[in-house]
């Protein structure tokens, strides 16, 4: 951002302060630009969580295997895997009910209806890039990331506070900037008033 138009001469102290403000805004801006993009993408993704799963892709299909024998749980699971052509050792097998068996594989769950052999085959995988962005944005990791995220928030505060003082004159707080600043504050306030009404 740069100033525009002619500005009245200012005191050396004010010039130094403005240089500090610009330098702070510039350097903090560079430092947090990457994370801001990540958080913005995640923010849009989780805003619409009612419409989609922002972190995982989960797909399921129903497969008919035909009647299954009356057998112990482990044997039944082995038979289901054999018929599905899956050569993977299950993570676990649980008889949820006399007529329902669940076989858990790596990112894949089979819900087997007994004895008819109807299988709901659910596969899931992390949504590339979004999973990681949400992990950071929603602070699933806790611990050290909490501190870094706090520092990032302070960085945003610095950006906001320095940003409004960068441009002097009519395009700054003395003119258009003031109205844009007020408009930006008015939107959330108006929304809150509208919701409270």
């Amino acid at each position: 951002m740069t100033g525009s138009g002619s500005v009245a001469p200012t005191a050396p102290g004010a010039v130094r302060l403005r240089r500090l403000v610009i330098a702070t805004h510039r350097d903090v801006g560079y430092f947090i630009a990457g994370l801001t993009v990540i958080y913005a993408v995640s923010g849009i993704a989780v805003n619409h969580i009612d419409d989609w799963n922002p972190s995982y892709v989960v797909r399921s299909e129903v497969v008919e295997l035909g009647p299954l024998p009356d057998a112990p749980t482990e044997e039944l699971a082995a038979e289901v895997l054999r018929r599905l052509g899956i050569d993977e050792r299950p993570r676990s097998v649980v008889r949820m009910a006399p007529l329902q068996l669940k076989v858990f594989l790596d990112n894949r769950n089979l819900t087997v209806g007994l004895p008819v052999g109807t299988v709901t085959d659910e596969r899931s995988r992390r949504r590339i890039a979004f999973f990681e962005a949400n992990y950071l944005h929603l602070n699933h990791g806790k611990g050290l990331w909490t501190w870094f995220a706090d520092a990032y928030a302070v960085g945003l505060l610095l950006l906001a506070c320095t940003g409004i003082f960068i441009v002097p004159g009519k395009k700054g707080l003395g003119g258009r900037g003031r109205w844009l600043l007020l408009a930006g504050l008015a939107v959330p306030l108006a929304y809150l008033v509208w919701k409270a009404w």
Partner: peptide
């Protein structure tokens, strides 16, 4: 949730004599 075998076998989750927990 209990669609599939349980439903196909006419064993819905909410039938009175079999609480949902038992129907899987």
């Amino acid at each position: 949730a209990a669609a599939g075998a349980a439903a196909a076998a006419g064993e819905p989750c909410d039938k009175a004599e079999a609480p949902a927990a038992k129907a899987g």
